[in-house]
Design a protein around this nucleic acid. Structure first.
Lengths: 108, 108
DNA sequence: AAGTGAGCTTTATGATATAAAGTGTTTTGT
DNA sequence: ACAAAACACTTTATATCATAAAGCTCACTT
């Protein structure tokens, strides 16, 4: 019922959105990192990154905690188990869909 | 200067957007097809598909032509050379970025 | 003690995806 | 033969959402 192209059209935007895809993919590599590092890595503006992180946190994909380091506040961002699973499944799905699309022949 | 994650964050939304990604990927397989078939294949509403096709056409990635078949109007959609190149490059880039991200180690 | 900069968060704005309504033609029912 | 429904879309309206701009708090400087 849900074919390749319908799955493409219905990709989860929470993860698929470029900025959040970058953040989640980075976090999957880093495990844990701080706000400013993530900002440098992704090139996002602070406000932008902040909003995207909130959305990811609301969805339970990341968890951030504030610390005081050298008398300055620092936000550390952790990817959750759910976040790690979600981004891994996303990338697998993308790869599968790409392969399926390449081998697809008109036969419904 | 532009690392993996910045490239992810800056993916071209014209192609990356799920509905258009589905349409372009389908057209890359089909070569040419009609509006209603594309609609069935992607599961998009008519209005939705119409708007997305317009954007792709404005960008020169597809070209549609109207015909009268069995006394009914039928819109045929062709992918252009540019469209074919763009979607191929998109998928290659995605694959590359995924691989690069997987092998990425913190070293700037 | 006023000013500055760091490290964010919140609000405002502008873009855009989708849903709803509309258009023109053809077919069907009576 | 005429109204009504069905096709095959397109156009407009709305609601979501990404990003930019402004704001906030605390520390440090002068």
């Amino acid at each position: 019922m849900n074919n390749i192209f319908q799955e493409l059209a219905n990709l989860d935007r929470l993860i698929h959105e470029p900025a959040r895809l970058a953040v989640l993919t980075a976090l999957a590599s880093c495990q844990k990192t701080d706000f400013l590092f993530l900002q440098r890595l992704t090139g996002l503006s602070a406000g932008n990154l902040s909003v995207h992180l909130s959305k990811l946190e609301d969805a339970g994909l990341v968890k951030s905690e504030k610390k005081i380091v050298a008398k300055r506040t620092q936000t550390h961002v952790n990817i959750t188990e759910e976040g790690r699973d979600s981004i891994a499944r996303y990338w697998e799905k993308i790869e599968t869909l790409r392969n399926d699309a390449e081998n697809w022949k008109l036969d419904e």
